[in-house]
């Protein structure tokens, strides 16, 4: 018998604290698989965010920093400038990256900082119990948009990958993927691997936006949540490569 699927080495053998069906666990595993496949466990340094993934430093078996809310790209910048030959990644949610930490991610991208950011977009604040995020869809009900996100009041959700892709130069990479079924999980892993390789080859800043679920705060079963992601999030957040073109 050949083992074709098991826990990756770069993932600690612990139970995640995430709610049942939360896709953070899938994304963690994909990152760990990529670290194993690229054989970079011993030179990778990760940065955990504030939000549901705050304990990510307990889950990846690599050197880790815990960052203040939204500051992971700045912390990763500091690490990478000290250890340019190491591989530095940050793991951030949508409140962390696209709200309180928007300046840090924009400028890390604008500098072409050679770091990799895994940006988990589940359209809501999970850890604090389901408040409106900068990526909450129009009309989506949350605990701070009880009648649904109103454009007049709160504006439109931010498309981070498109925005970053529009303001930086070549060498930088922005891709949006999803983890709602095995086919897309395969594509997500490929994008994460390419984002790490982009850093290793010294080309520039890489961000992979991963559309993710929050069954608990969306008020859905895990299976319904995947369906909601596919039906509601994909039309507003199209999957694809938003990297800047040559000559931008």
């Amino acid at each position: 018998m050949k083992v074709i699927f098991e826990k990756p080495k770069s993932l600690e053998d612990v139970t995640f604290h995430y709610c049942p069906g939360c896709t953070h666990g899938i994304i963690h595993r994909l990152i760990a698989e990529v670290i194993d496949e690229l054989e970079i466990q011993e030179k990778t340094i990760g940065v955990a965010p504030v939000g549901c993934a705050v304990l990510a430093y307990d889950y990846f078996d690599v050197d880790m920093h815990e960052a203040a809310h939204g500051r992971a790209p700045a912390v990763a910048t500091g690490i990478k400038r000290v250890h340019p030959k190491n591989v530095v990644f940050a793991y951030q949610g949508d409140g962390d990256l696209a709200s309180i930490g928007m300046a840090e991610v924009v400028h890390a991208a604008a500098r072409g900082e050679k770091i990799t950011i895994i940006f988990v977009n589940n359209a809501i604040y999970g850890m604090t119990g389901g408040q409106m995020a900068p990526t909450t869809l129009v009309g989506q009900v949350t605990n701070t948009s009880p009648t649904g996100r109103d454009v007049e009041h709160s504006g439109y959700p931010i498309r981070v990958s498109e925005m970053l892709g529009s303001l930086v130069g070549p060498g930088n990479s922005m891709k949006r993927v999803s983890v709602h079924d095995p086919k897309h999980i395969g594509q997500a892993k490929k994008a994460i691997k390419e984002a790490f390789i982009n850093q290793i080859e010294g080309k520039g800043f890489s961000l992979v936006e991963v559309l993710s679920t929050c069954p608990t705060n969306w008020g859905k079963t895990p299976v319904e949540a995947l369906k909601w992601l596919e039906e509601k999030m994909l039309p507003y957040y199209p999957l694809g490569d938003f990297s800047p073109k040559e000559g931008v």
Partner: peptide, 18 residues
């Protein structure tokens, strides 16, 4: 391996017979 890919908690190990 689809079940293992989809599992958020790394519960599943998959083997293939030689």
């Amino acid at each position: 391996g689809f079940c293992a890919m989809m599992c958020p908690d790394v519960v599943i190990e998959v083997r293939r017979p030689s």
